[in-house]
Design a protein around this nucleic acid. Structure first.
Lengths: 332, 332
DNA sequence: TTGTAGGCGTTATCAG
DNA sequence: CTGATAACGCCTACAA
């Protein structure tokens, strides 16, 4: 667009590039009249500084990498949206990276980001689940600020914003108990870090409350409508006694609910259902789904706050925890 | 991470930086032995070239801007995902920008992107709907490749990938006619370019088919569950005869369907419903929603193909059209 | 085949 | 207060 550089402006305004640079950077050591003249020239020529050249000097650019497994899942897109909007107001652009969840891509992306001189990196969701050994990422960027959501790592340049899954699971169980349930089953998906966590918390709290818990109280399935249906089939086949199911994901929950209906069970009368993430789908299904709201906007906002502190060199909490909220609808 | 620069490598390998640069850029004018030695040093020192410095020389970086109103809507996140994945394989990083749909932010973002030397810009969805006067964006980037989806502009550096809304509307109407309907109403939202288009195509095709069409055949409402419900209320209040409704959006359609059910109408027996965008919600609601699949993966893939052609200076089609597909489920 | 030197557009350190 | 000038890390004629 703009081919005018600082030399052109300097020539036009009859000053040196140093003076132009000072004006650009609000350096007070410029006389009033000179400043005004330069400012006018700047405006007249529609000058825009090259962020690339600035980056070369600063050894980094006003950009931040956003790493996420898949922006198509609404959890991630909500968080990414919030982060991007906040960062853009601070003058940063966000580089979106869909890592696809494999270590190879993680490394590739982190390398690309570092080469391009990002000022920081935010990881949304469990980007590094199983593969992150705590060094692969950090070795690439010893001193680049990193914000992790849903994960934790010990390092000076790393902060975390965690979602309190324990609290979420507890309020889900509490809510069901209030509704008179005690035979509760948890349906999780394979492999993800947070799914592991939730399963653990589920077991602990069920036992703590003196509710029945056995090896068949937790089922594993895919995150999908068909996964939910399969889970319900599995639960029924197992013969375990149950009157409520907590799913790790809304769509899976809806799949389960639909399958129950197909088999003649009604929700919430015969089986109560709780989903997770409070997505649009939870409001769209019938009956509308009670679901755990993970407050992703809050996660995004806090992530940017932490990142800014790290960038500014401020002292900052290494870890902030967010308490999810159970949104009660018709399925419980 | 890596502080080794091309000078360090040159020193270590006992060559000049020019030679190192040649090796890095696969310039054949380097002897076999020298190349090997440099390569080894490169590897040993774990050297990564600074993309910023490269950018300063090239006057642009290996980045592409992705402009979209809001990445949280699944249309956009699917398209953005596809584009990002494709571009990353070509060595480009994607800068995500949520424009929020207002001209001010559009300009701000385009300026930021240009300042940072993006190689191209992709606009997802109707980013420039009403506000884009055809110059505001282009004036900022006369020679930067731009890909528009769902919009068209005459300029050498601009290509479009359009979704054939006419065809989509026609297949929706055809499908309903096949099912025995003739009193069909269209529910649109305010303001968006594509919503305008669809309304126009709806009118045209209804008239062409000799189906009843009047001023009350098109209703305007918000894109939301409550918007859908309000639309249904409005339609009923208007007294217009109808047995089928086409909505411009899945969630709105579901809101309408739920409202109909509340009022004692059943779908598809009393009123058939068609949604738009074939989102997850369409599969989750009951009855599952017949919906127009806009093939956003295809849109993303083609966008990148066009962009690459533009970047490489190849001749390329100025405009490619995608034909959506009606996915029939239980609501019709 | 290899090296030298200038340039990309800024910022920042010195002198004046 | 202002102006040369040297970085920043890389690419690329032009020389050798």
């Amino acid at each position: 667009m703009n081919s005018a550089n600082i030399y052109d402006v300097a020539r036009e305004a009859n000053v040196s590039i140093a003076t132009v640079s000072r004006v650009l950077n609000n350096n007070p050591r410029v006389s009033r009249t000179t400043r005004d003249r330069v400012l006018e020239t700047l405006h007249k020529m529609n000058y825009q500084p090259s962020e690339i050249a600035r980056g070369l000097v600063a050894k980094k650019m006003q950009t931040v990498g956003i790493l996420t497994v898949d922006i198509r899942s609404s959890n991630n897109s909500i968080t990414a949206y919030t982060i991007e909007r906040n960062l853009s107001m601070l003058g940063y652009n966000s580089m979106l990276c869909n890592t696809f969840g494999n270590e190879e891509d993680n490394i590739k992306y982190v390398r690309m980001l570092m080469d391009k001189g990002v000022s920081g990196i935010v990881c949304i969701g469990s980007v590094f689940d199983r593969t992150f050994n705590g060094t692969s990422l950090l070795s690439e960027c010893k001193s680049t600020p990193i914000i992790l959501t849903n994960y934790q790592v010990e390092a000076d340049n790393v902060c975390s914003v965690l979602i309190d899954d324990r609290s979420a699971i507890q309020s889900a169980i509490d809510h069901l108990v209030e509704r008179g349930h005690k035979d509760i089953v948890f349906v999780r998906d394979m492999g993800s870090f947070s799914s592991n966590q939730k399963a653990k918390f589920f077991k602990n709290y069920m036992e703590k409350c003196g509710l029945p818990f056995g090896s068949e109280s937790i089922f594993v399935t895919d995150r999908s409508l068909s996964g939910g249906a399969a889970a319900v089939d599995g639960i029924l086949a197992s013969g375990v006694k149950f009157s409520a199911i907590i799913f790790n994901d809304d769509v899976t929950a809806i799949g389960g609910m639909k399958q129950l209906k197909r088999l003649g069970y009604s929700t919430p009368e015969d089986v109560a259902i709780i989903g997770y993430n409070n997505t649009t789908a939870a409001e769209c299904c019938t009956p509308a789904l009670t679901s755990v709201d993970n407050k992703f906007e809050t996660v995004g906002n806090i992530a940017v706050t932490l990142l800014r502190d790290l960038l500014d060199g401020n002292n900052t909490s290494k870890c902030i925890s967010i308490v999810p909220e159970l949104v009660v609808r018709e399925s419980t």
